[in-house]
Design a protein around this nucleic acid. Sequence first.
DNA 1: TTGGGTGCAAATGATTTGCAACATC
DNA 2: GATGTTGCAAATCATTTGCACCCAA
Lengths: 134, 134
Amino acid sequence: MTARHDTVRQGLAAAGTFVSAQDLHARLRAAGHRIGLTTVYRALAAMAGGGEADVLTADGQQVYRACGTGEHHHHLVCRSCGKTVEVSGPAVERWAEAIGGEHGFVDITHTVEVVGTCADCAGQPAPATPRPHG
Amino acid sequence: MTARHDTVRQGLAAAGTFVSAQDLHARLRAAGHRIGLTTVYRALAAMAGGGEADVLTADGQQVYRACGTGEHHHHLVCRSCGKTVEVSGPAVERWAEAIGGEHGFVDITHTVEVVGTCADCAGQPAPATPRPHG
DNA sequence: TTGGGTGCAAATGATTTGCAACATC
DNA sequence: GATGTTGCAAATCATTTGCACCCAA
């Protein structure tokens, strides 16, 4: 709950972008930490559950990212280099609530992900992972 | 490409809500179709790629849903019964573009999912799959 | 000593792939 | 005959679980 979990927490923060559990585990081992894959999974799950990390699914894998504030926000992700910017948009929050209400839904939650090509990568060949509409 | 794929297409349409490949395969077999799981996977992948179906990940599984129009839209999903309403929101589209532009991103795509409890299910115990912020 | 955290190894389960049979042109 | 589809069985691979071990209270 503490020492190891803290290692994971710091490793995730150090990564800066979205990383998979496997990836993070490899990085930690490479950095000399003696930690098991299982523990990384467990720590990440705990962090995600506690709002300390964001999770999303890419290519059938769960990828995690340290979540600074713990407050509600969304992500703008570069499809090429993976760079991520945390953004917030009151307009979207309001829209989601309104749409839900219109259809009689209550207790509305929403997930928004904006993907694009960042300025640095525009003009260079984009490696993969396009994402059609959703 | 045709007979079997059409079986899958129709099966998906008949399902009405999000179903997994495994689930859809089981339904088709139950309905007397002689079709392989592999083919169901391939057909669904093709449909998803061609905009005929929407995909999203739930509980580590990919779930698919027939997508009527092929046009860009989003989903309002009931967390309890899975009922889905297709919604569209110009406001969100504009917001995504604007946010991307502000940060120098181009070729913006976005994914939005609104989850709530529908009128029918409100008041009844919600079985599972909550979804924290994203 | 007691309970929770840890990690190895094995299990699980969705998805993919190799390949041979089959239909269609 | 060539080309593309199908589906079985086996392979793949992320994630989870069983269980023994070890540390801190």
